[in-house]
Simulated assay, not measured.
Amino acid sequence: MSRLNDYVENHENLDKLNVILKHYGVSAEFVAHTLSEGFEQDKELPKELIEDMKQFCAML
């Protein structure tokens, strides 16, 4: 159950972060590029996630 609570809490925090980014007019391109750079440095993340972020950046 605690893992489920973590998912819900993380989702709520992401919603709050999204509101802040929208308020300041931060572009999706900037966010995606910044996340991609950060994700590449984290060796514990799945390679699929990193590839998906790269593809998303290319679409923008």
Rank of each mutant, 00 (worst) to 15 (best):
M1F: 04
R3L: 04
R3I: 06
L4G: 01
L4D: 02
N5C: 04
N5I: 02
N5Q: 11
D6F: 01
D6R: 03
Y7R: 02
Y7F: 11
V8N: 00
E9S: 14
E9Y: 03
E9L: 12
N10W: 00
N10V: 00
H11D: 03
E12T: 10
E12Q: 12
N13A: 12
D15G: 10
D15I: 02
D15F: 07
K16N: 12
K16L: 12
L17A: 14
L17C: 08
N18S: 15
N18G: 02
N18F: 07
N18Y: 13
I20F: 04
I20V: 15
L21W: 01
L21C: 03
Y24I: 09
G25N: 11
G25A: 09
V26D: 05
V26S: 06
E29L: 06
E29C: 08
E29G: 06
F30V: 15
V31D: 03
V31Y: 03
A32G: 06
H33I: 13
H33Y: 14
H33V: 13
H33W: 12
H33D: 15
T34W: 04
T34P: 00
S36A: 13
E37G: 10
E37I: 11
F39C: 05
F39S: 06
F39Y: 13
F39N: 01
F39A: 13
E40Q: 15
E40G: 08
Q41P: 05
E44T: 15
E44D: 12
P46A: 01
K47E: 14
K47G: 11
K47F: 04
E48G: 05
E48T: 13
I50E: 03
I50H: 07
E51G: 00
E51A: 13
E51W: 06
D52V: 08
D52F: 03
M53P: 00
M53S: 05
K54I: 08
K54E: 08
Q55C: 07
C57F: 14
C57T: 12
A58K: 15
A58M: 08
M59D: 15
L60M: 09
L60E: 04
L60K: 02
